[in-house]
Amino acid sequence: MEPTLTAPHATADLISRNNTPMIRLIDIEKVYQTDTIETVALNRVNLTINRGEFVSVMGPSGCGKSTLLSLMGLLDEPSGGTIEIDGRAVTSYSDKELARVRNQKIGFIFQSFHLINDLSVLDNVELPLLYRAGTSGKERRQLALAALEKVGLSARTKHFPSQLSGGQRQRVAIARALAGTPEIILADEPTGNLDSVMGEEIMDLLLGLHRHEGTTIVMVTHDENMAHKTERLIRFFDGSQVS
């Protein structure tokens, strides 16, 4: 089953949006502290991701890639510096405001899928919409079905994650990330747990999403081949950007 993506936006439109910053990290620091050790995960990182860009982040394990993605996705607080999402500094936002930005602007894809095993595929995909005020049950269902259609899993709506292959689970996770039509998708090693064929499938899905819908995508990966398919490659080493 070949996943397909529709193309609602014109390419010209995408180009015109390319120079607007979508995510800006200004002097970002992240220090993990225990009683005895202080570990610098990110050291004064300055980075701008433009609207509609597909950027991959590479680097050895422990270099701060995932921390970077967590900070961009507002899943963690920086120790210093400012994060701007769509032109607004969000560093001082309350828990409620951060939740709203995550809900409306950002979709996440994790290496280990992080699906809720007790929920069906459809219920998993509906999850972001559950926290969106004013979305009725019927709308939620329609949007979730549309997202599942995009990843080619319409026939699996009633299945549970445990009944799916790794590739299918990651597609459910992508559908979940898409369901709320976010402007940004943050993918943390989305192909890391998949074999090469399934990895390619997932990568094609993300490329299609970027190409046809203009979604801004930041992907952390270990795979050079995958990284080279994206528009820009950022390399990290020891908590700093090296290229």
Partner: peptide, 16 residues
């Protein structure tokens, strides 16, 4: 905790 993390990542507030 993983479920809690996912829910928060997709917009659940602490209160929810």
């Amino acid at each position: 905790s993983s479920e809690i993390g996912v829910r928060k990542a997709f917009g659940a507030t602490g209160g929810k």
